[in-house]
Design a protein around this nucleic acid. Structure first.
Lengths: 108, 108
DNA sequence: CATGTCCGTAAGTGTTCACTTACCGTAAGT
DNA sequence: ACTTACGGTAAGTGAACACTTACGGACATG
């Protein structure tokens, strides 16, 4: 059920920006906040949520807390999505087969 | 940017239940609502959001609107997640290397 | 010890949003 | 045409939540 938390976390734009900024280079909270349009406590709160979802982890480095991406949450989300993807495709193919009458077509 | 809408949609538990109930068997709105603890208009609103995110599509069947899963939105979300997954793993490996290597020093 | 930096938490506020009931258009049956 | 089923939309309400400022604890340097 952790994928639910992960989805909830990644649904927020700011939280997603925090998460994406961690991709590739771990950063302490202050540096992270300096590159974002919100206050430092806001970033702290977002990091707490991301951590509870298993999306990030942190290590202490002196007085700093360096955050980095934890693959656990992302992996669980990916597994859920993949399992869903297969069955979704199956359902969709069945649906398309039903509409063999060519007058009707799906819109984009 | 559609993955943002998809994430937002799937972050809501009820909307996720609607979506999951469509997996495998397309259903009209009424039947869908009868199996859920919310009212039919609520389901309609959720379906509208899901449709705008490219997660579901619908076909008219008499007075009924039968909804089914559209792989488009799910596919885009999957691509975004996959692209993210690779870089996240890379970042995480670098992080683990920093921890397990005894003589490693910090300082960026 | 004292000062400065870094960060998490508390408390308060405004907005988003998921839900409700009420209403209206559409399709099929009599 | 009338009636019944189906479903989308409007309007209003309560709660979740993303932000803010203020505060306090932990670490390093003088």
């Amino acid at each position: 059920m952790t994928y639910a938390k992960a989805l909830h976390c990644l649904s927020d734009p700011t939280r997603r920006r925090v998460f994406e900024r961690l991709r590739g280079n771990p950063q302490p909270v202050g540096v992270l906040a300096r590159g974002l349009p919100v206050s430092r406590p806001a970033v702290s709160q977002h990091l707490k949520a991301l951590k509870e979802a298993g999306l990030v982890a942190d290590r202490a480095e002196g007085a700093r807390r360096v955050y980095y991406i934890d693959p656990d949450g992302l992996g669980e989300l990916r597994r859920w999505l993949d399992q869903f993807w297969d069955e979704a495709l199956e359902s969709f193919k069945g649906e398309m087969a039903r509409v063999t009458t060519p007058r009707n077509r799906k819109k984009t």
